[in-house]
Each structure stands twice: as C-alpha cells, then as structure tokens.
Computed example of a mutant assay.
Amino acid sequence: METVVLVNESDVEIGLMEKMEAHEKAMLHRAFSVFIFNRKGELLLQQRALRKYHSGGLWTNTCCSHPRPHEDIKAAAHRRLREEMGFDTELVKAFDFTYKAEFTNGLTEHEFDHVFIGTYDDLVQPNFDEVENYAYRALPLIEAALKNNPDFFTEWFHIAFPKVVSWLAENKS
C-alpha cells in the first residue's frame, strides 16, 4: 500500500493516507515535479504510461510523484527520476505551487507540488511501466503544443510549465 503525506496550505504535515483514498477524497498532499533540460535548453518530456491510474498517455514534465513518509522531498525527486527515467542528475529546488484537478474517473489531484530543475545530456533509460514515450522539445514548440493541443498534456503541466519558463528567465546565470 502506497501512502502519501497530507499537508495544509503551508506544506505542514498533518497526517498520512493511502494514495488512492487521498485521490478519491481530494485531500491536499505533498508531491514533486522534476523538469530536466539538455544543454540546448530543450525540456525532456515524458508521455505517461497508458495504464496509469489517471492521465495515462498524456505528455508532461520529466517525472513527478509523491515523497514517502519521512522522506526528504529532494531525495524523493532523485529516487523517482532514477525509477522513471533511468538516470540521476543534480537538481535545484525552483519553487512550489498548489493545484487541484478533477479527472473523469472520479479521482482528484490536490497537491502541494515542489518543483525541481536539472540539466542532463546522457542516456535516458525509461521504465516502460511508468513511461510510454519521451522526447526533448524546445520551449517554443511546447508552448505552441499547449495552446494548439491542450488535451495532450496533464493538468499540472499546464500550470507548472509557464512557471518554470518564468523561473528560468529570472535565474539565468
């Protein structure tokens, strides 16, 4: 049984709940999203496996999940990057946001989402139980696809992607 960490609007832990129950009851819980770019500035997108419990087959950021109880959020992001995409790289915490999205199957994502950003140019070895496909894409192409084919992307990606683009612009080195 997989458990998620329930939090309040300030990301203070208030309890634990079985993952599916939390999604059935729309309980706010801790999550993370990882955005990996190559040196050309292209984002590594993931197409979620078709059999996922929601948003199967939709395109999204490089990986995302929930930390385990008592697991450091950044450590969880590294763990899940290895589990889903078959690699690890340095990650920087960029920002966090809260969102709520209802799905046609009756589940609701209500997450306090911590966003991490990294750079990677080597071999990607996705876990095909989690990932249907993957591709690096330039930001203008992603922006156009979000506008022209919004149903091809996950709910949280629509919210997080523009925030990541803004963060990148503000944090150029």
Rank of each mutant, 00 (worst) to 15 (best):
E90R: 11
M85G: 00
K93N: 07
D72A: 07
M1E: 02
P150K: 05
K19F: 05
K163C: 00
V115M: 08
E21Q: 06
G118D: 07
I73M: 12
A22E: 02
S33L: 11
E155S: 15
A22W: 04
E170A: 11
S166E: 15
N127A: 08
L28T: 03
F35V: 12
L16G: 04
W167R: 12
K52Y: 07
D88I: 11
A145I: 06
I159A: 09
E21I: 04
G15N: 08
D96W: 07
M27W: 09
V7T: 08
S166N: 13
D121F: 02
L168I: 08
E24L: 07
H29R: 03
R48Y: 12
E84I: 03
N38A: 05
A135H: 04
G106S: 08
K172L: 10
D122E: 14
L107M: 01
G41E: 06
Y136M: 01
P69D: 07
P162A: 01
K40G: 09
K163G: 00
D129N: 13
T60N: 08
S166C: 13
F128I: 11
E21P: 00
K147V: 15
I142N: 00
G86F: 07
E90P: 06
L58D: 04
H66G: 09
P140D: 01
F116Y: 11
G118S: 08
M17T: 08
L44G: 07
Y99Q: 00
T108I: 05
T98D: 09
R82M: 10
N8I: 09
T3R: 11
V12R: 14
N61L: 13
E13M: 00
L91D: 00
H110W: 10
A160N: 03
N148Q: 12
E90M: 07
H70F: 09
G15E: 06
Y53Q: 12
F32L: 06
H114P: 05
R68A: 10
K74D: 04
F112L: 01
E21L: 03
T119M: 14
F95E: 14
A160I: 06
E143S: 14
V115T: 05
A31G: 14
A160E: 03
A145L: 09
I14E: 01
V5G: 13
V7N: 03
R82Q: 10
T98V: 14
L50W: 15
P67S: 03
R51V: 05
K74F: 03
R39W: 10
F161N: 01
F37P: 11
E83P: 06
M27T: 11
I73Y: 06
S55A: 15
L45Y: 00
E83T: 07
M20R: 11
T108M: 04
T154G: 05
F153V: 05
